[in-house]
């Protein structure tokens, strides 16, 4: 479903990703862990086309993200191509990023209506359904500023799902929440992960959450994969010293 080939990403002189290769299967749930600055979030941002690769290629469902074919040449992707590949991908952000100029319902329906051309009524039915699923059926007409952080993040999750993505990217979705709100959002995501056949790519510092939802854990350091394996193995008997140090540091915190 997702394939990285020799992906490099530099910001000025800083090399964030180096010759990164990895592959995520359809319906697979993968968690990225590692110290901050190791390039985890950059991977999500590259997939969401918020950043462009410096070198290498990324394919999603067989389509190249950064380039497109014109005749028999590869040329940099234009906006039309980007919108085509983005259709399959959704993202939930650390800071929620709900639109403050719209109420909850419009936050969820606006993109399906405007970007996909779904009739508004149909989009609203779907939005109510999603709000019920995230436990906020009564908040459709509330304003984002009237919601707690946890509620805002649930709306953001509903908003991403309303676009019916095949891949969902979760970027430290509970890091900005008050401690008592974390578990609610995690439980919701756990349910979503186990219900559907979404391909899930998740960056998190919550190791228990990572263990619960993922098939596979990738440990990153300095823009490269240090170790990968099923969560049981990574969290109980990591093979690499770097992984052990990192997990130790996280558990001590």
């Amino acid at each position: 479903m997702i394939r990285f080939d020799k992906v490099g990403k530099r910001f000025g002189d800083v090399s964030v990703l180096r010759e990164l290769d990895f592959h995520v299967g359809r319906g697979e749930r993968v968690t990225l862990i590692g110290p901050s600055g190791s390039g985890k979030t950059t991977i999500l941002r590259l997939l969401m086309t918020l950043e462009r690769v410096t070198s290498g290629t990324i394919h999603v469902d067989g389509q190249c993200l950064s380039h497109m074919r014109r005749g028999d040449r590869q040329v940099p992707a234009d906006e039309r191509h980007l919108r085509q590949v983005r259709k399959k991908i959704g993202m939930v952000f650390q800071q929620f990023n709900l639109f403050p100029n719209m109420n909850v319902l419009r936050n969820i329906t606006e993109a399906p209506v405007r970007a996909l051309g779904v009739p508004r009524e149909q989009a609203e039915d779907k939005a109510h359904e999603l709000l019920k699923m995230v436990g906020l059926a009564d908040k459709a007409h509330a304003h984002p500023s009237q919601l707690s952080g946890g509620q805002q993040q649930r709306v953001a999750i509903a908003r991403a799902l309303a676009m019916e993505p095949e891949v969902l990217l979760l970027d430290e979705v509970t890091s900005a929440l008050d401690p008592e709100l974390v578990s609610g959002v995690q439980n919701l995501l756990r349910d979503i992960a186990h219900q559907g056949n979404l391909t899930l790519l998740c960056v998190t510092h919550e190791m228990n959450f990572a263990r619960d939802i993922s098939h596979r854990v990738l440990m990153f350091d300095q823009g490269q994969i240090v170790e990968e394996g099923p969560p049981e193995q990574i969290f109980t008997e990591p093979a690499q010293q770097r992984t052990r140090d990192f997990l130790q540091a996280v558990l001590d915190a």
Binding site: G90, F93, R114, L116
Partner: peptide
């Protein structure tokens, strides 16, 4: 973040 959320939701520019 507002622009990025709008990109993630596949709005046109």
């Amino acid at each position: 973040g507002q622009r990025e959320a709008a990109v993630a939701l596949n709005f046109s520019p």
